[in-house]
């Protein structure tokens, strides 16, 4: 009995300690003076993290927009309200689906790769040797990846939303025969740039911070063995997905819930 309490206490302390460690890690790597070299490194990571994830995010966005239109139409048509299809597709995409699904895809595609890459650099002593050369790996390796993640995910989310709205139009207007004017018109009447697009982007910025942070920290703090790398990669995807979904609830409650 007492053993269990002791274990619980120790677990609590260790969790807190890790959290603190991760926080210090984030602060140390983010706040550095950017240099020309830093910009070049950041560009390379943008390519790796952003451009390489573009295809999967856009294709998913297209399909989700199309499915939304299809499902929405079958429900709305019962009420004779299929004119509201555009508004339904746009609002569910911009407020909810684009930030969340893009973040989940990003965690799976880019987050796990970041963890594995940094983990491998740690396992092959590249991080240590960098330190011995007199270069701070937090600045050189971690910071460009963090910043690339922060910028890339909101951009990917925008892409997701645009393609999704277009996919909804494809199914709703071209296929199911919703009047094009009411698709766009109802959408424009109900979507507010600041409240919907802005809040959606704010969400994705928060998700970008959390997902990239988890991915990079898991890579930096892992046990440098092949088993450690595979475990950390799994942890990145699991923790990041849970964090995104949990935070999404909190953010939605603050942004849209209860406030008219």
């Amino acid at each position: 009995m007492i053993d269990h309490i002791v274990r619980l206490g120790r677990w609590g302390c260790e969790t807190l300690e890790r959290l603190g460690d991760a926080g210090i890690f984030l602060a140390q790597s983010m706040f550095g003076v950017p240099s020309a070299e830093g910009v070049r490194l950041w560009l390379r990571q943008m390519h790796f993290v952003g451009v390489m994830s573009l295809a999967i995010v856009l294709v998913s966005g297209l399909f989700i927009g199309m499915v939304l239109a299809l499902q929405g139409y079958t429900i709305l048509v019962d009420f004779g309200a299929e004119d509201a299809l555009g508004q339904m597709v746009a609002l569910s995409l911009l407020r909810e689906l684009a930030p969340v699904v893009a973040a989940l895809l990003f965690a799976g595609r880019a987050g796990s790769a970041l963890t594995a890459e940094i983990g491998l650099m740690k396992a092959t002593e590249q991080l240590t040797s960098m330190e011995m050369i007199g270069v701070d790996p937090l600045r050189r390796v971690v910071a460009p990846r963090l910043w690339a993640g922060f910028v890339a995910l909101p951009l990917l989310t925008i892409g997701f939303g645009v393609v999704g709205v277009w996919g909804g139009q494809l199914v709703g207007v071209q296929w199911l025969g919703v009047f094009e004017g009411s698709y766009w018109g109802n959408m424009q009447a109900s979507v507010d740039f600041v409240a919907d697009v802005g809040n959606g982007l704010l969400k994705s910025l928060v998700f970008a911070l959390v997902v990239t942070w988890i991915a990079v920290y898991q890579g930096y703090a892992l046990v440098p063995t092949s088993e450690g790398i595979s475990r950390a990669t799994t942890r990145t995807v699991v923790y990041a997905s849970l964090a995104v979904l949990g935070l999404d609830f909190v953010l939605t409650a603050v942004m849209f819930g209860g406030l008219s």
Binding site: R44, H47, G50, V51, I158, G159, W184, D192, V197
Partner: peptide, 30 residues
């Protein structure tokens, strides 16, 4: 190779900004 990469990143960011403009004008009717 790095030139191509920089170009890719540039296009990516441009596409993101254009997407935002689309969301603003076409979707939210600004």
């Amino acid at each position: 190779r790095s030139k191509v990469m920089e170009l890719g990143v540039g296009l990516f960011m441009l596409a993101g900004i254009l997407g935002l403009v689309f969301l603003g004008l076409r979707v939210s009717g600004l």
